[in-house]
Structures are given as structure tokens and as C-alpha cells.
Simulated scan of single mutants.
Amino acid sequence: MSLSVQLYTMLSMIAMGSYIGAAIDTYHRFSKRRSSFHWFVACNDVMFWLMQALVVFYVLLQTNHGEIRFYVFLALICGYAAYQAMLRPFYRGLLERCIMLTVSIYKGIVTLFRYLVMKPVTFILKLLYSLCMMIVTGCTAVILFLLRLVLVPLRGLALLLLKWTGLLTYVKKSEPIFAKIKEFIKSMRKKKE
């Protein structure tokens, strides 16, 4: 292995040590830690460390074809220590600002969606409902008015015909029967309720 490859390997492993420190801080920021053992957290931890190992090995594979030497581990430890000593406060502040910015953007998008899509759609639906109710009410009023115009003269004509034919006396005699039928129907309705 040439000296330049060894230098690239050292620098990349120092960078990967810093990356692992940042990844650990990010993972701890987003993971929910519990005081007792939980399988889900344990599985997440195992998956996290497997992913970090794969990323480190991929970088090592790109720089020196995957040759693992003692100085590779030293470079990883040095990179992690450099991150802990110098970069950690800066990265944590940057991470918190990124999280706050992402949350603000999300809330802004939700607010925009509410005001640009939901409110106009609900306003249009309420307007359409009001218009439909106005049309139904208007049509009902017109139909009832037309029925009254037709039924009032027909009623008068029917009364005249009943008087002329003498059937009005039979209708008046049968009114108590109709009243009893109405009472019976009302009592049946009350029993059902």
C-alpha cells in the first residue's frame, strides 16, 4: 500500500470517526430512551450500529480496498475524540436549529394548506349547501303555492258537487268514523314510540 493511499485512509477514517460522533448525537436526539429494557430500542440500536459499520467499511473499501490495519482503528478513535472535543457543541446547535427550521417549515406548510386549500373548499361547500337549500326551499314554496291555487278551487267545486248531489249529508255522517280512525292511528303511533 502506497503512502498516499495510507494518508487518504487515515484522513477518511478521521472523518468517519467525526461522522460516527455526529451520528450518535443525532440518533440520541431522535431516539426515545427508556429506563427499562425494551426490544424495539434494542433492535434500533443494533440496526444503527450495523449501518455505521457498513458506512465505515464502504469508505474504507473506497480508499484502500477494504484493508483493515491497526492505524485505521486509531484514526477512527482520533476522529471521534476530535468531534467530542471541538465539533460537538457546534454540531448540536446546528442540529437543533435544523430541527426547529424543519418543524417551522412543516407548520408553515400545514398552515398554508389549511388557509389555501381547506378553508376555501369548506367555504365553497357551505356556499353550495346554502344555495341548494335555498333552491329546495324556493321550489317547495312554489309547488305548495301552485297546489293551493289548484286545490282550493277544486275543493270548492267538490263541496258544490256534494251539495247538489246530496252526498254532503253522508260525508258529515261519516266524519265520526274518520275521527275514530285518526285516533286509532295516533294511538298506534304512540305505542310504537
Rank of each mutant, 00 (worst) to 15 (best):
H38R: 07
Q52F: 08
H65G: 10
G79E: 08
N64E: 11
T63K: 00
S35C: 01
I77Y: 04
V41N: 11
C78T: 10
A82C: 07
Y83F: 15
V55R: 00
L61R: 11
S31Q: 10
Q52L: 12
C78S: 07
D45C: 10
F40H: 01
L54N: 04
V56S: 07
G79D: 05
H38M: 01
K32T: 08
R34H: 14
Y83D: 02
Y80V: 08
D45M: 10
W39F: 15
V72E: 01
T63I: 15
Y58M: 09
C43S: 14
M47S: 09
W49K: 02
V59R: 03
S35I: 10
A75F: 06
F57N: 04
M47Y: 01
G66Q: 02
V56R: 00
M51F: 11
F73C: 05
L60I: 13
Y71W: 13
T63E: 01
W39S: 11
V59A: 12
Y83G: 02
C78H: 00
A53W: 12
R33W: 03
C78V: 11
G79K: 08
M47N: 02
W39M: 14
Y71E: 07
V72I: 14
V56L: 06
H65R: 14
L50A: 14
L74Y: 09
N64A: 13
G66Y: 01
W49P: 00
Y80M: 13
Y58S: 12
K32Q: 07
R34F: 09
W39D: 04
Y83N: 02
L76I: 15
V56E: 01
F48L: 11
F40K: 02
C43G: 13
A75K: 05
A42M: 08
F70A: 09
Y71F: 15
S31C: 09
A81F: 08
V55H: 00
F37P: 03
C78Y: 03
R34M: 04
I77L: 14
F70C: 02
K32W: 02
L50P: 01
T63Y: 00
Q52K: 06
H65E: 10
A53N: 06
V72T: 14
Y58N: 07
F37K: 09
Q52D: 08
L74V: 13
F48G: 09
F37E: 04
F48V: 13
V41D: 11
V41E: 13
G66P: 01
Q52Y: 06
F57L: 09
L76M: 14
I68E: 02
F73K: 00
S31V: 15
L74H: 03
G66F: 01
R33T: 12
F37D: 05
A75T: 06
W49I: 07
A81M: 09
M47P: 00
L76C: 10
R69H: 12
I68S: 04
H38T: 09
K32C: 03
